[in-house]
Design a binder for these strands. Structure first.
Length: 264
DNA sequence: TTCCATGTTCCGCA
DNA sequence: TTGCGGAACATGGA
């Protein structure tokens, strides 16, 4: 689930539930979930702190600690959050549990262990170290800046849009959606795209991601014209009615409409 | 039982 | 040398 719109929903969830409560105790289930931080350092920074604010960059969620530094959450493919009363059993696959002084907890769950929990002194430095590209919804990422990101690159457009060091936030599902709505074949070589097509991809990316954030990335709430709710081979294309096809692009399953997204 | 999955990282090759 | 594509990783549900 967790691509940019999902992480945006997690951010809203934390903002609505978990800010400004003192963390009495934190519980780490499996240290493999940790990034470049020791369990001791993480827990020392969490204990007694409050989450003061949150920020998102691509698929990363940052929670600012009022005593300094940031709790950094990445959700992998199966990560999630749950806020509940401490008398309730934490959900299955809970890897990190923050117990607040108001009797509630925030649980970070990660079934497949591909997510990561980290601590960062400085958010911008963390983003720079990870070599993340600009957030796909960043205000200062305009059409021209977007075109610059792709300029001179080799490879297929789908691979580039999924590359977090080029532009941060999209994964397999939303890239398919963007390219479907833009009418671009996923395997199109970047150098074969003209300026008009790049602008179309940019505008479509912004529109799709904004809409998905607005709908809290809940598939059922997305417009019927979207590919996402019908991401199934041989289901009818919402635009032309022809069959949606499946293929492999850089090892990822890709859904597309051969008629609406002709090969360049 | 085998295969597949919305994630990133690492290695080999061009 | 840079960077692209594929494999590997971990786990459980279909």
């Amino acid at each position: 689930m967790p691509e940019l719109p999902d992480v945006a929903a997690f951010k809203d969830y934390v903002d609505a539930s978990s800010l400004h409560h003192r963390i009495r105790h934190s519980r780490l289930t499996d240290r493999r979930i940790l990034g470049e931080v020791t369990p001791q350092k993480l827990q020392a920074n969490l204990a007694g702190s409050r989450l003061a604010s949150t920020a998102r960059h691509g698929k990363f969620l940052f929670a600012e600690l009022d005593r300094g530094g940031w709790l950094v959450l990445h959700f992998g493919m199966t990560g999630g959050l749950a806020y509940a009363k401490q008398e309730d059993e934490p959900p299955r696959f809970t890897q990190l549990l923050l117990e607040f002084d108001n009797g509630y907890y925030l649980a970070y769950t990660c079934q497949r262990m591909l997510g990561r929990v980290s601590y960062a002194e400085d958010r911008e430095a963390f983003i720079a170290e990870r070599e993340l590209g600009p957030d796909a919804l960043a205000e200062d990422l305009d059409g021209e800046a977007f075109a610059d990101l792709l300029a001179g690159r080799r490879g297929m457009i789908k691979s580039a849009l999924m590359n977090q060091s080029i532009v941060a936030g999209m994964g397999n599902v939303y890239v398919d959606e963007v390219l479907f709505q833009a009418g671009i074949h996923p395997k199109t070589p970047i150098h074969r795209l003209d300026g008009k097509q790049i602008r179309t991809i940019y505008r479509t990316m912004r529109r799709v991601l904004h809409k998905a954030v607005e709908k809290e990335s809940i598939i059922e709430r997305l417009p019927a014209s979207y590919l996402l709710p019908r991401r199934d081979t041989d289901r009818p294309c919402p635009r032309c009615g022809g069959p949606i096809r499946q293929m492999d692009v850089s090892g990822r399953t890709t859904h597309y409409c051969p008629d609406c997204q002709p090969e360049g």
